[in-house]
């Protein structure tokens, strides 16, 4: 999203171009246009646009993409600090989504 930008240089996204088979799935699923398919290889063109949703990594058939996926939600992160991770609920008692 060009009109909204968040912190720069933090995204954990890594693309292994050697593994890439150029299927273009990452380019389709990314809602922020982070990838582009160029010469039958995916390339990251806007890493700071990445919100780490993990859609690309999950849909890469050859596991060429790595990202630490998660919810960019302060209330959720506070819960993970206080409680154990598996007992946190996004949207339940707390905010977000």
């Amino acid at each position: 999203m060009k009109d909204f930008r968040y912190l720069e240089g933090v995204a954990t996204l890594v693309l292994n171009e050697e593994k890439c088979i150029g299927c273009g799935e990452c380019e389709i699923v990314c809602p922020h246009g982070v990838f582009i398919l160029d010469n039958k290889k995916a390339a990251v063109i806007d890493k700071d646009g990445c919100m780490e949703c993990g859609a690309c990594a999950l849909n890469c058939p050859v596991s060429a993409i790595e990202v630490t996926p998660g919810v960019g939600c302060a209330a959720y992160i506070i819960q993970t600090w206080v409680k154990r991770k598996d007992s946190t609920a996004c949207g339940g008692g707390a905010v977000c989504c």
Binding site: M1, F4, R5, Y6, L7, V10, A11, T12, P31, H32, G49, C50, M51, E52, T68, P69, G70, V71, G72, C73, A74, A75, Y76, I77, I78, C90, V95, C96, C97
Partner: peptide, 20 residues
């Protein structure tokens, strides 16, 4: 305002944690 990050479709968890 910081809690509003959870309602937006562009904030990354790494970024939110860093800010927090």
């Amino acid at each position: 305002a910081m809690n509003f990050t959870g309602s937006t479709p562009f904030t990354s968890p790494t970024g939110v944690e860093k800010e927090m």
